[in-house]
Amino acid sequence: MPWIEACATDDIDQEDLIRFDHAGQTFAIYHSPDGQFYCTEGMCSHEKVHLCDGLVMDHLIECPKHNGQFDYRTGEAMRAPVCVNLRTFPVKVDGERVFIEVA
């Protein structure tokens, strides 16, 4: 599966995220406090609210609707009401560009 260019590294501040839409799918791309990039599906697994409006704290994304939290590095549901993990996607950085691999 080819890598898809999603954004520039400086498009996302550290401890923040952006929305990326591709081929009918929505993703959330995160820039961690330690400078790494991660990608999850973009919609909360609880009520399908887009995570791009959520709050990023350290390695957690908090859903803007019911405050459930996920670890965006692994997709793991961390705080109720979310109980279904997010799907995650491989990320690579090439120069100043961020790429994701969508299977």
Score class of each variant (00 low, 15 high):
residue 2 P to I: 15
residue 3 W to N: 07
residue 5 E to F: 08
residue 5 E to S: 10
residue 9 T to A: 09
residue 10 D to H: 11
residue 11 D to C: 12
residue 11 D to T: 11
residue 13 D to Q: 12
residue 14 Q to D: 11
residue 14 Q to M: 12
residue 14 Q to S: 14
residue 17 L to G: 00
residue 18 I to Y: 06
residue 18 I to L: 14
residue 24 G to R: 00
residue 25 Q to R: 13
residue 27 F to N: 01
residue 27 F to C: 00
residue 30 Y to L: 00
residue 30 Y to I: 00
residue 34 D to T: 14
residue 35 G to Q: 11
residue 37 F to H: 13
residue 39 C to Q: 06
residue 40 T to V: 03
residue 40 T to W: 03
residue 40 T to K: 08
residue 41 E to A: 06
residue 41 E to H: 12
residue 42 G to S: 07
residue 43 M to F: 08
residue 43 M to H: 07
residue 44 C to E: 06
residue 45 S to V: 02
residue 46 H to P: 05
residue 48 K to Q: 09
residue 48 K to N: 07
residue 54 G to V: 06
residue 54 G to L: 04
residue 56 V to W: 03
residue 60 L to W: 04
residue 61 I to S: 03
residue 62 E to Y: 01
residue 62 E to P: 03
residue 63 C to A: 05
residue 72 Y to S: 05
residue 73 R to I: 10
residue 75 G to M: 09
residue 75 G to W: 01
residue 76 E to M: 07
residue 77 A to T: 07
residue 81 P to H: 11
residue 82 V to Y: 08
residue 85 N to C: 12
residue 87 R to S: 12
residue 89 F to P: 04
residue 89 F to S: 04
residue 92 K to V: 15
residue 95 G to H: 12
residue 96 E to A: 10
residue 98 V to F: 04
residue 99 F to E: 11
residue 101 E to P: 02
residue 101 E to I: 01
residue 101 E to C: 13
residue 102 V to H: 11
residue 103 A to E: 15
residue 103 A to D: 15
